[in-house]
Amino acid sequence: MTNLVDIPKVNAKNMTEKEYFYGHKACAGCGGSVAVRLALKVLGERTYTALPAGCMSAVGFIYPQMAFNTNALITTFPGAASMASGIAAGAKALGQKDVKTVVFAGDGGTADIGFQALSGMIDRNDDVLYICYDNEAYMNTGIQKSGLTPYGTKTTTTPAGENLPGTITHKKNLFEIIAAHDIAYAATASIGYPQDFMNKVNKAKHTKGATFIHVYASCPTGWGTPTETSIEIAKDAVDCGLIFLAEYEDGEYKLNRNPKEFASVKDYLKKQGRFKHMTDEDIQCVTEHRDKKWARMRKQWL
């Protein structure tokens, strides 16, 4: 196996100018499409790309205007991981060398409907990189709550009103659920830290077997944020500690950023239409949950 430490780092200077995902119909400022675009720049031509139902498949494959410059395929909604596993197995059985299969699935496609197949894929250690672009709700169908929608979010199925603050559950702990499979490599990332994300993709590319990246990807349409702030808001999420950057490698967790102080949670939330209604009490609930999580991560991972 390649020593992951020795892989040349990807940066703005050496990254390819080739585009593998363009001409699609995503909303202006779409964070998911940034994640796909950057990841494919790292993965390159010899990539089979599989996407379940979701924003990126909806905007990328409208016949006859195909937006992927790599081989690409829309999968069944619950079967992204298994269809990708089949691609990888088929390629192997046909003797194809130097091939990577990648999945780009949304938060609902990953943490909810596609989870069983994903668990099976990791269990079999199939040679697939699974990237979950997390915009924290079912955006393609019109902003409905998923298993990764955070507490307090107003969605079309968790409306905020006098009786409820919007979503009443916290995000599923996806990264650790994946790591609990004892996967060869898993990471969290944010499009607000693109170089970190791309280098994690690069590590996964050079890891044989099942790998997973959970990348935070903003959605101006669903979040109620200006289109030009998509990268900024994805960075804010990390800086205020609601999203963390970490890796799981060789059975060990690693916190990539462990700031002494967090930026304001309230500032991050109040920039977004989906959180506008939140009371100080709601924000307190979110902050406490963050602090508890970080205390545990610092205790167990450092």
């Binding site: 999968t75 089949g86 990888a88 197995a89 088929g90 197949a117």
Partner: peptide
Amino acid sequence: ESEHSAISATMGASAV
């Protein structure tokens, strides 16, 4: 891990 994945995987393999 399921029949849904069985048919999905065979489709994926057939697609290459």
